Simulated scan of single mutants.
Amino acid sequence: MKQVIQIIAMAIACYGMIVAVLYFFQEKMLFFPMGQAFGNCRQMERYGAEAISSNGIRYYLKRTESAESWIIVFHGNAGNACDRTYFFDLLTGLKSHVVLCEYPGYGGDNRKPGEKIILEQALMLVKEIKSQKIKTGNDKHLPVFLLGESLGTGVATWVSSQTPVSGLILISTYTAIVDVAKHHYPWLPVQYLLRHRFEASAWASETTTPAILFHGIEDDIIPIKFARKQVKHFRSDAELFEIEQCGHNDIVDTGKMLLKKEINRFVSAAGG
């Protein structure tokens, strides 16, 4: 009996240690900033994108002659904006200025990444872009579209609930980070531990922005069930495209033709 009690006590102690590690080190488990320091990116230089820092906001900007819209990209939780030049290729053919947002704490930044600061800076960036007057034939402000990838889908959705934009393009989306965590760790009380929850389903119900969603059917990081739920939370028109034989990290490559076709259609229909 004594041995049984000791085993139970050890199991409880181990469980408690795991819970403590998850709570105190959750930033390191959610945010993975890696790669080049912001502004020191040869890939961006090859695409003619310039690195811009303004009031603590950092982004790469690739201008397009006679642009008819802006597309602002919020990337996933790993790497940094320098790794995302594939979005320039994906968006080729659209007459759009493309902005790749760099998150606080990423790209050699000494700030600590977190939900609050990432959302605040994303909103500041969008407002800064919206305030710039790019002269077109009718000399009006250009429509702004937000493109979110993985973690960035929640960022884009939240921003659209705070300031009007023309459309949301969401690749590998979720209902909430806490929901994804519960899927992967059903034996842990993650709903009580996570500080960075990214409640995208609530934000979707607060925005009137039309949305187009893409998700790999074989995604094992953010399973497609979350996209199927999330698309139903939008108050506005929202459409989900499910891509066969496609996971999480290969969606832009595997689904490139479908993505290009539907993004072009979506942006054109929304006035871009």
Score class of each variant (00 low, 15 high):
Glu65Thr: 09
Ala11Glu: 02
Ile217Glu: 15
Lys116Gln: 15
Glu128Pro: 07
Arg111Ser: 14
Ile8Cys: 12
Lys182Thr: 08
Phe25Ser: 11
Lys225Ser: 13
Lys229Asp: 14
Met124Asn: 14
Gln43Ile: 07
Val19Leu: 10
Ala269Val: 06
Ala156Lys: 03
Leu123Cys: 05
Gly48Asn: 06
Glu262Tyr: 12
Phe87Ile: 14
Leu151Asn: 08
Met17Ala: 15
Thr175Arg: 08
Val99Glu: 03
Tyr174Met: 04
Ala270Ser: 11
Arg265Gln: 13
Phe214Gln: 00
Glu262Ser: 00
Val21Ser: 08
Asn249Ala: 08
Met44Tyr: 05
Lys260Ala: 10
Phe87Ala: 11
Val98Ile: 15
Gln245Met: 12
Ala67Phe: 08
Pro33Lys: 09
Val267Asn: 02
Asn138Leu: 10
Trp158Asn: 09
Ala211Cys: 07
Asn110His: 12
Thr207Met: 00
Leu22Ile: 15
Ser131Asn: 14
Thr157Asn: 00
Met1Ile: 11
His248Pro: 02
Asp83Lys: 09
Lys225Thr: 13
Leu168Asp: 05
Glu120Cys: 04
Lys127Met: 11
Ala49Gly: 06
Leu188Lys: 06
Thr208Cys: 08
Phe24Leu: 13
Gly39Ile: 02
Val159His: 01
Lys260Leu: 07
Leu90Cys: 04
Leu123Arg: 13
Gly247Leu: 03
Arg84Asp: 13
Thr254Cys: 02
Val155Phe: 12
Ile12Gly: 09
Asn77Phe: 08
Glu199Gln: 12
Gly247Cys: 11
Ala181Val: 09
Ala13Met: 13
Leu123Asp: 08
Tyr59Gln: 03
Tyr106Ile: 04
Ser201Met: 10
Pro189Cys: 07
Val267Met: 07
Gly272Asn: 01
Cys82Ser: 06
Leu240Cys: 03
Phe74Gly: 02
His141Pro: 09
Val165Met: 03
Ala13Asn: 03
Met29Gly: 15
Asp250Gly: 10
Ile217Pro: 00
Pro113Leu: 13
Ile251Asn: 00
Ile221Cys: 01
Thr163Met: 02
Tyr106Cys: 07
Thr254Asn: 12
Gly76Ser: 07
Leu147Glu: 06
Val190Asp: 09
Gly35Ser: 02
Gln26Pro: 01
Val178Cys: 00
Trp203Ser: 10
His248Leu: 03
Leu30Arg: 05
Leu90Lys: 10
Ala270Thr: 13
Ala204Asn: 05
His97Thr: 00
Lys140Tyr: 04
Lys232Asp: 03
Ile263Leu: 11
Tyr59Asp: 11
Ile52Cys: 01
Arg195Pro: 04
Met124His: 12
Glu45Met: 06
Gln230Met: 14
Gln132Lys: 13
Pro223Asp: 09
Gly56Asp: 06
Glu242Val: 01
Ala122Glu: 04
Ser161Ile: 07
Phe214Met: 00
Ile217Arg: 14
Ile71Lys: 00
Val159Glu: 04
Pro143Thr: 09
Tyr185His: 03
Gly48Leu: 04
Gln36Ala: 15
Pro143Phe: 03
Gly148Ala: 04
Arg42Cys: 08
Lys116Met: 14
Ile217Asn: 12
His184Pro: 06
Met17Lys: 09
Ser160Trp: 01
Ala9Gln: 04
Gly105Ala: 06
Asp237His: 14
Glu115Asn: 01
Tyr192Ser: 11
Cys82Pro: 07
Ile71Trp: 00
His196Asp: 15
